[in-house]
Amino acid sequence: MLELAHITKTYNGSGGETVYALNDVSLRCERGSFVVIVGSNGSGKSTLMNIIAGSDTPDTGNITVGGKKLLSMPEHRRAATIGRVFQNPFQGTIADMTVMENLALAYCCGRGFTFKPALTRQLREEIRERVAGIGIGLEDRLTQSMSSLSGGQRQALTMLMATWRKPRLLLLDEHTAALDPRSADLVLNLTGRIVAERGLTVLMVTHSMQHAVLFGERLIMMHHGQIVYDIRDGEKRRARPSELIARFEELRRADRMDESVAGLLRAQYH
């Protein structure tokens, strides 16, 4: 389904040195798999998401989704293939349009923004039904402006919008990190439900080790632009948050070691 081959992305560090945001990353995900990605800040997980979605371009490498080459397509042409939910709950919806209008835009995704009337009676019915399906009473607020809703409510609607037509791949970029715990639970439950109901292929980045062990059947840990840890199925089911945190600590210790060695070397050469 999703295949990343040797993706590398570099940028210039403050001292003019080359920094690898992604260093020769390859990854294969099967259809219908739910892959969780964890990693510290700057480990490259967000860059990876941006490159798949098309808001960033890699230096080298190749990406295919369902056999379709992605890199030659601009971001908006990938949208029919890839659904995306951002960390910022205000980024995925349009604040000063109504809930109904937002969902009508989601309906147009993949169908084209043509001169046809946007909100037909049939579509209004469909929207009402599917919003009611979320189960948080938003079907009574369809004509209200999106800006009148809370972050959690908006993120729930973004989930619905990103999956309105079944995307081949769903990218969840820390999509509950900016929400209060109750809203985060709500959005995560909804995520699980939608993904299961529709059999979606998902890449989910998260900072929460609890969520990382609860969701998905495969877990990937990134560090310094590389995949350092990749477990699935039985091993993934047995994983505990404490183990993951221990792994992080280990990586961090190794980093500190590197730094102190570098410091020693610098001291000798200056």
Partner: peptide, 15 residues
């Protein structure tokens, strides 16, 4: 209207 208000969201919706 959407593009005037939130370009990122509209790009993600394929516009």
């Amino acid at each position: 209207r959407g593009a005037g208000s939130n370009e990122a969201a509209m790009r993600a919706l394929g516009a």
